[in-house]
Each structure stands twice: as C-alpha cells, then as structure tokens.
Design a protein around this nucleic acid. Sequence first.
DNA 1: ATAATCTACAACCATATGGTTGTAGATTAT
DNA 2: ATAATCTACAACCATATGGTTGTAGATTAT
Lengths: 116, 116
Amino acid sequence: MSALPSAPADADSLFHALADPTRRDIVTRAMHGEHSVSALAGHYPMSFAAVQKHVAVLERATLVTKERRGREHLVRTNIDAVRAVAQVLDDYETVWRDRMDRFADVLASRQEGERS
Amino acid sequence: MSALPSAPADADSLFHALADPTRRDIVTRAMHGEHSVSALAGHYPMSFAAVQKHVAVLERATLVTKERRGREHLVRTNIDAVRAVAQVLDDYETVWRDRMDRFADVLASRQEGERS
DNA sequence: ATAATCTACAACCATATGGTTGTAGATTAT
DNA sequence: ATAATCTACAACCATATGGTTGTAGATTAT
C-alpha cells in the first residue's frame, strides 16, 4: 500500500522506544498532527532537553520523522513503523494459532483411532 | 473468548520485556511447548542466572507463566499478554484510520463547496 | 544417605537510561 | 542590528539493566 519512506528499525529499538509512557504519548500526539519539539515539550513535566531526547529515541526507532520548517522541527508519527511492530506480534499470534491447529489435528486423529 | 488467568501487565513492562532478543526468543520457544528454565538456558550463550532473570522479567510482564513440576519450573507463554500488546498497537492504528477518515471528509466537503 | 539437578537470590560490575543544566548555532521577530 | 525562539548537544548524575559468580534450598536419582 504505502511506499516505504524509511525502512522500519529493528524490533529492539521499536519495542524499547514504546516502553516509555512519555514516548507513547508523543507518538499519539504526533499522529493527530504535526508538533514542534517545544510544542510537545510543553505537555510534559520535564525539561525541553528531556523531551528532545525522547523524540530522538523515537526518531532512531523510525517511529517518528522530523521535518524542518523554519526554526521549528515538526514531528510526525510514521504509522508504518507502528504497523511493523504490530506485525511482529501478529506473527506470534500466527505461530500460536498454527500450533493450536496442529494440536487439534492430533486430538482428532486420536479420536479416529479410538472409534475404529 | 479465553478466561483471564492473569490480568496483563502495564504497557511499560510489556514493551520493555519484548525489547530484548533473548526474551523474544524465549517467548517464541515457550509458545511451542513447555520448557524448564535450564532447558531454555541451554540455548543461549549466557549463564543460567542471566536466563533466569530474563524469564523473571517476562513473568513480571505476564508474558509467561511458570508451573512447578517437581524440581523443574515449566515456562509457558501467555498468549493473552501478547494480544494485549497487539491491542495497544491496534488502537494506534484505529486512531490513525479515524484521523484519515476525518481528513478525507474535509477534502470531500471542500470539493462539494467548489462544485456548488 | 549421598550426590546430582534445578531453581532462587544475593552481591557485584560495566554500561545504558532518563533526567538535569548550560552553551551554542539557526532562524525569526522587533 | 539586536533580541527572542527553537533546536542540538555536551557534561553530568542517579538509577536501571543485563551480565557475572557464588551460596543455598528443594527435589530427584543413585
């Protein structure tokens, strides 16, 4: 569907980036619209530098991108990276489901055996 | 569907637990069947104690459960916790989609205005 | 009974992480 | 031109993290 403007980062960076409530909140805000780093910083009880670091972590994980507009750097969520993480989890789900199916097969063939 | 044998942990613990390749591998192995902690430890180039710590992190995050069988503690993946993480990401996806829909509406009504 | 196996946990260490303040470079506003 | 705003980054600090070895308690095997 969408082109790949930046290949998603490794699972390590992605999960680590999402393992912080401030960063998850930034991802949510940056989905609803563009925000400068200082606009974002205004929402959190910490220094601008701290928020800037959080944005940098998200950027390294490809979860957000920054576009320079004048002296501001607008932060935007990269939904493809979110989807990449979801994909990892869906893969787990698939593995689980396959295993359940095989398990059901074994049970079924056992019942066949008992019946005959 | 499935009952809740243990309420999933907070998103912080869940994402953090998944942000390590060894732990993700343990989750995968423990989906395919039960493994004792030492059986798991055999697969990784680190001490038993290190693996035991990884299992403890996964257990605190509710991603695995341990059931004692004799002197062994069998580790099993809790698929509901995996689903809980997937849910968080699906929520992002939903928010994004809603935003896209509203955006499309705005564009459509604008075109209406131009046509009339 | 004794030895071996499995797990838990303490103590320790190096590095990563999340926060701080301060300085400096770009850009915009006055 | 000068001041204000926005961002980047260095230096620093306390704590968390991922690893280690060692000790000890349960359980199983001999």
